[in-house]
Amino acid sequence: MNKSRVTLWAACVFIGLWLIAPTLIVIPMSFNEQRSLAFPPKGFSLRWFENFFSDAQWLGGFLNSVQIALLTAVLATVLGTLAAYGLFKVKGIRESIGRNFLIIPMIIPSVIFGVGLYSLFLRLGLVGTLPGFLIAHTALAVPYVVVTVGSTLAAYNVSLERAAWVCGANKFRAFIGVTVPMLMPGILSGAFFAFITSFDEVVVSMFISSPYLQTLPVTMFAGMQREVDPTIAAAATLIMITTTAAAIGGILSQHLKRKRT
């Protein structure tokens, strides 16, 4: 390896560390013995995790987040997969209009969406309700499913489906029995990413939550602005573990696709 390559590697290792390492600091902080977020943490204790799971606010937020994220993942995956498939079949200008339309939620700042949704939900009485959260989060998560399933579809051999038709399967059974299994890598990673999108969402959720229905990131955000409490570090560690696990799941299921084709 020549000199410039070594320099390049060194720079990139540094950049890679900056991307990954800082976040890991929340883990030792969550096992802190003291009621402080000062570095370095002192001692080792599980009291902040105990605190997390015994506090109605934190635990409630966590359970709400899990429930909303799971439901959102299911809804977004079904809607997104159907949409990706429907658009794939249409082709042409209508396909690209539909696809770009479905990408819009990725581009418009979530504050703008959140404020508007708040206004709408106030009129409809959906603020602080489960359906309200599901509408908001699914709208935000659908684009990810459309993108991942769409990219799997781009590599999908359409003649497989035709073969199923020729073999006597009707369109529905061919779709369920042949197309869906073939698209599984894209669908699975879309589902994982939809889960994370919902589980991690904070801006829109802040607008549409109420004291009775809050998600974990909202609780955490409020906590961070209020006081120094290592329970936040425990919450952060839990969120990180959950989203990292889901992200690895998402990335791995995309990898599945490469192995199969």
Binding site: P22, L24, M29, I196, I239, T243
Partner: peptide
């Protein structure tokens, strides 16, 4: 795919 909140929190600690 790691929480934006968690990352902001980590930067606060740092």
């Amino acid at each position: 795919w790691t929480s934006m909140m968690v990352r902001a929190f980590a930067w606060i600690i740092i």
